[in-house]
Design a protein around this nucleic acid. Structure first.
Lengths: 222, 222
DNA sequence: ATGCTTGAAATTGGATGCAATCGTCCCGTA
DNA sequence: TACGGGACGATTGCATCCAATTTCAAGCAT
């Protein structure tokens, strides 16, 4: 289970727990994180908690202020746009490195995810499936640095994607589904250039739509 | 000096110190890092040292193995190539966001750096000037996420750039200088497309030359 | 000579305790 | 009422101490 009582992994486990809580929405951006609370919850002392917070801070998920405390990082609109601009450049590269290693069974599964996403109107499920879909398209990449980078970029924006997902209208949703299907089709055809450019458009379009919702972001994030 | 006796910053200071030591070459890739050593050196206990190591591990500069220790991260050739591929996609974007904000004085300074680089044959000075040149070209960007990402990518590869720099022949060096001068010229002309594509080629060329020196890398890095 | 076992030293992991800092409430003053 | 200014409580920062684990060398067996 989650609590393997192995020595030397407390900080990592606690970090996993917090990361999961942030991604699941349990901890929203701006939420105060208290060391003691996490420590008792993990049945540990504050020492490994602090190490976990340092890790998460370096990942950008948590913001530390000396002598004051830790908060779940929030983003300004411009920071979020920055992340999307980076994703626009980086994820197509990762897709290119992954796609050749995805077999037919995996492509079928991707189609299934895309279909499930189109079939639901539960925003939370949509969000989960979307993440699962995209990260799965990267699953064939034998990379370390790049896939880690992309995962971190997804993590940092996940909370905002959650809110935005609830605001999408039917037209926007339909466009997303079309793009997903086209991406899988391009990958089936081993047409990496098309897959790349479809993904670029996909991310860029989302970025531009996000720009129309500044109310989702704080002016002065921490 | 380096030791401002402020409360709540010990871990950050120690991390700065280690990061600096890695970049300066004092700590080469693969070097074992002992907590006690750093603690006494910083006049602190091992607790903030461990927090610093967690941060650096999240930055990719240090590799931690539970119950065993910390080492300065080393890269395999393929990991290094990965980083360069990411840089190829990401740095031109950052340059585009920075260039419009660089005034004539700053562009003059960049030309000066390029000239100084061309004039020296001290590899260490070359390395320092090269870093200073490129990071300065990004100095106009009002970004947080992206510039932080680029700095980290530079940091992770700096040790290898050091070794490679010593191996460059005159022709390779001359090419680099030409590219630097052309980049500054393009920025003076406010020709962002040219600046971007020059930078892309610049990084790609270096990546391809690095591929010819697998002996600089470990097969199984940690 | 090589490989395996054992045990002590070295090193890391984590809990506890205390000092330092920050927030907040309360009070006094204008 | 509005505006400082302490004092207290809550929280974080860090040093010290002990436990868990690994490493390494010496000894033993093959």
């Amino acid at each position: 289970m989650a609590s393997a009582p192995e020595h030397g992994a407390a900080a990592a486990h606690i970090a996993d727990r917090i990361r999961e809580a942030i991604i699941s929405g349990e901890y929203a951006p701006g939420t105060r994180i208290r060391q003691e609370e996490l420590a008792t919850e993990a049945g540990a002392s504050r020492v490994p908690v602090r190490e976990a917070l340092r890790m998460l801070a370096a990942e950008g998920l948590v913001t530390l202020v000396a002598n004051t405390g830790a908060w779940v990082s929030s983003l300004s609109l411009s920071e979020c746009q920055e992340i999307y601009r980076v994703r626009e450049r980086v994820e197509p590269l990762l897709l290119r490195m992954s796609a050749p290693n995805l077999d037919d069974a995996e492509l079928d599964r991707l189609d299934g995810l895309a279909a499930a996403m189109a079939a639901t109107d539960d925003p939370e499920l949509f969000l989960t499936l979307d993440r699962e879909f995209h990260l799965s398209t990267y699953g064939g990449a034998e990379t370390v640095v790049l896939s880690d980078l992309v995962h971190r970029l997804w993590n940092r924006t996940h909370s905002y994607r959650r809110v935005y997902t609830g605001l999408m209208d039917d037209r926007a949703r339909e466009t997303v589904h079309d793009e997903h299907r086209l991406m899988v089709a391009a990958m089936r055809d081993r047409d990496l250039d098309s897959a790349e450019s479809l993904l670029t458009s996909h991310i860029r379009r989302t970025r531009r739509q996000l720009a129309g919702h500044p109310e989702l972001f704080l002016a002065t994030p921490r």
